[in-house]
Nucleic acid binder design. Structure first.
Lengths: 233, 233
DNA sequence: CCGTCCCTGATTGTTGACAACAGCAGTCGA
DNA sequence: TCGACTGCTGTTGTCAACAATCAGGGACGG
């Protein structure tokens, strides 16, 4: 009921004006739990257990599960209940490809709409990122990374793309955080981020889109490199 | 229960293995009805009426409405029920922008994966399109347009992008068909289509993406030109 | 010993009744 | 005449009991 802290980076979406209190809280908390890894992929989500955990009626639990199924986080099989959806590496790549073009679009629009104030904020984040990398604070770098992408989306103000990106990012949440902690990864991505910032502050949509796409394309390359050795389930 | 005919072009998505029989039929039929214009934007969708029309229990009607709300076709307000969502011109533009980048991605992947057989199919459609335009059969041209885009998506086999494109196209269904009937429109889009086909058959992903994006960008231009005069609500 | 069948407990799907709410019309007071 | 208030009606939100279904184990026959 109190203002949620939104720790995961996935917005708790006020979206529709009002859509059912208990259902919404159950949905948001369950999503948070899944993203936090409390329920592993493939794990069954038994309604009775969720009722106990969230203190919400079965009716609302079911609605919440339906919603999360729509978001692609859980899979519902008739008469067999819900389970956390497993996402294959191939699908991870597909999703990231889609994210690539969407965030590219957003970056381009951000470059068109950016103001001086916002540009300064971008620069600020860029500076902090560089410092974080230089001092080896990778966790902090990862947080700044989230902030940067979020700010770009705010500047762009593209509601439609925003919604989709949220949904896609949630699906990848588990794989996602591993990447930024890969050894050497920040050294690759820092200049990419700086290029994105520069392009946006220069009001150059095309360059911004290209920079953003290159950035995410390099993520896809990393994913592809994981494809051959059966590293992940 | 029998094999659905899928008349609307929006796939009736077998997606999840099994997700509730009545709910699914109610959802698909209601979507079809909305897309066919039987319910106008802003019109209330009263559960009791839907029950009578589709002969499905209220429970499943509600689930269906929830689903369609997730797809953006319907808007649900607490205690006030569901209504067909109104989509502003600005939002139409946003949605089309997203479609632009997604279909661009799909076109690129199609160029990578196309086989000789598929390329022939593309050429065939291209030829028919040209003939249709030359003989002024605009309705036929519009149908071929749908077929072309569908075939490209089949060739690409990008499930994630596919799903999203379906959803987005459904949201625009009402505005969409008007465009291809605009005077002079086919003369502009025919060469664009031919360029897309050529790029895919040449296995040139970059060119294919660019051609597809230019094509849809020109649609966006048309939409923008409608923005100033208050032609559409 | 093995495979099949059936039975049982656990879990989900569905229904109908009831409660809560928004919108509206008609009433009362100024 | 106008405004606010109040009850009514239509509609949606919620629940708890019941029905259907699935997964697993034990008994039976071969």
């Amino acid at each position: 009921m109190s203002a949620e802290k939104n720790l995961t980076g996935v917005r708790s979406r006020p979206r529709r004006t009002d859509e059912g209190k208990d259902k919404a809280t159950a949905r948001d908390e369950l999503r948070k739990a899944i993203l936090a890894g409390e329920y592993m992929p493939g794990e069954r989500l038994v309604e009775a257990q969720l009722i106990e955990r969230f203190g919400v009626s079965r009716f609302n639990i079911r609605l919440a599960l339906q919603d999360l199924s729509g978001e692609g986080l859980v899979e519902i099989q008739r008469n067999r209940g819900a389970q956390v959806r497993k996402i294959s590496l191939a699908e991870t790549i597909e999703i990231t490809q889609v994210r690539m073009v969407l965030e590219g679009l957003v970056a381009a629009q951000a470059a068109e709409r950016v103001t001086e104030d916002r540009a300064s904020e971008l620069d600020e984040i860029g500076l902090l990122m560089r410092r974080a990398v230089e001092s080896g604070e990778f966790r902090r770098y990862s947080d700044l990374n989230v902030r940067l992408h979020a700010l770009i989306r705010t500047i762009a103000g593209h509601a439609t793309a925003d919604r989709l990106i949220d949904t896609l990012r949630a699906q990848l949440a588990r794989h996602q955080f591993m990447l930024s902690l890969l050894p050497g990864r920040p050294l690759v991505s820092l200049p990419q981020h700086e290029r994105i910032i520069a392009a946006i502050r220069d009001h150059d949509p095309k360059a911004a889109e290209e920079a953003m796409r290159d950035h995410i394309a390099s993520v896809i390359e990393v994913l592809r490199s994981l494809e051959e050795p059966g590293m992940i389930q």
